[in-house]
Design a protein around this nucleic acid. Structure first.
Lengths: 246, 246
DNA sequence: GTACTTGATGTGGTTGGACCACATGCCTTA
DNA sequence: TAAGGCATGTGGTCCAACCACATCAAGTAC
């Protein structure tokens, strides 16, 4: 039996060594979603590193949405492998938006791109559309602004999921998450929230109807107008508008 | 003067408190790209937490491409704010591909979507196209497979940058990074690398020429065919092909 | 005066050990 | 049999020390 102890890792920082070990376990299939990592102390001893380094690696994986750490005992405890790419991408985008190196306009425009594609590609019989329809019905009821926006997020995510591309879905969700704080502030700029909400509901139904009729081209156009219209009404201007090119 | 010490953060883990503090500094403008964080020991004392927690927060930010930690003394040392969203998105995507929760096919298809859009939107006089052209000339010389692929990556990134959307550029780069190990293996499947490389070069020149002639529609088509063709030749099949819908 | 050596200083990198809060499950006890 | 409490194992946090590294300033040799 060979030892897991690895010394002489000159170029790599210790926590990166742990990171690589875990990633290899994932790629090799020894570790899969739902599985549990060895306890921090155990893993530290196995790899011949300190628990601190193991913890730093786990922190990174947690931020990446790859594991979830839970204290205590039992099935809910320990560090278990999950898969939440949206969380990772969302946090990263939000931070870089904070540093002002990712313009909010570009985030919105990318969202238009991805959602338009998803709407065009979604199949009329996709089961996710049933969820979208149910969410739409729910949005008719009297809701607070926050509740309405929460349902709105879920509706758009359901549409994205209907396209059947996990990467696009994840990116969509992360874009939405990255600017959700920003979007929340925008609602304060709206002159008449009730009127806006009513319009949004109508547009939602149009979009869903277009997809159901397998008119992907129209659905894509409606989605693009829907998203751009909202941010424009709330006061977000494109940075170097060139509508003819979009 | 109020104290930075924050006790009683019951619901939040300590490193998340540090994370929030730094993110607030970024959003508020007290910290910007190029700026340096306080030393770990200093920051720990200021926030009233242990150095361990500060380090865990910095690890996360490092993984997110927001800071770079350097030992020693002088301008290169310390923890300095950078902005490399591509690194963060790339690592996250790679890990989730490793867990098999993001199909490689979806990554490729998303790449087609983003690059087609970028090619269609790029302006004929964008300065990034000059770089792309220079890279193309360089690719004519005799290169090893790895060198050729490295230049290929830079060419595609230059095209993406020409569209002027930082989010799309970052996502593009991250998608490429997430599957670059995979793509490297694919080259081994190619029957005749020299022939393939020659074809790729010709396609590159066609794409660039289309953009230069402001024929965005044709550029987008060429890019899509270029990417799909490469992966198809290397043996990657679409998971549920429905070409009429793409 | 110039060039080299050497030490002080400050940075992140790593370690071991200690203690806490928490959740579970077994085991004792009434 | 049912209720309580302790043993166990998990991650969460902190501390004190040491190392490797890079710079800069003081001192020294020429």
């Amino acid at each position: 039996m060979w030892s897991n102890h690895i010394k002489y890792h000159g170029l790599m920082r210790t926590h990166q060594l742990v990171l690589r070990w875990i990633e290899d376990q994932l790629s090799g299939g020894q570790l899969a979603v739902g599985g549990r990592l060895p306890a921090e102390r155990t893993l530290a001893e196995q790899l011949g590193v300190s628990r601190t380094s193991v913890r730093e690696a786990i922190r990174v994986l947690e931020a990446m949405g790859v594991v979830r750490a839970g204290v205590g005992s039992g099935p809910e405890a320990g560090t278990v492998v999950i898969s939440d790419p949206t969380a990772a991408l969302g946090s990263a985008l939000r931070l870089h938006v904070a540093t002002q190196h990712l313009p909010v306009e570009d985030v919105v425009e990318t969202r238009v791109l991805l959602e338009s594609w998803a709407a065009a590609r979604a199949r009329p019989d996709a089961p996710e559309l049933d969820l979208a329809g149910a969410l739409l019905d729910d949005m008719d009821g009297g809701h607070t602004v926050d509740d309405f926006l929460a349902l709105d997020v879920r509706f758009h995510l359901a549409l994205a999921d209907a396209a059947g591309n996990a990467v696009v879905s994840a990116m969509m969700g992360s874009l939405r998450e990255a600017i959700q704080g920003y979007a929340g502030q925008l609602t304060a700029n709206l002159p008449d929230w009730d009127a806006t909400a009513s319009r949004l509901r109508a547009e939602h139904r149009e979009i869903l109807a277009a997809i159901r009729k397998d008119d992907g081209g129209r659905a894509a156009e409606l989605v693009a107008a829907h998203i751009r219209g909202y941010y424009k009404e709330a006061g977000l201007g494109p940075k170097d508008s060139d509508p003819a090119r979009t």
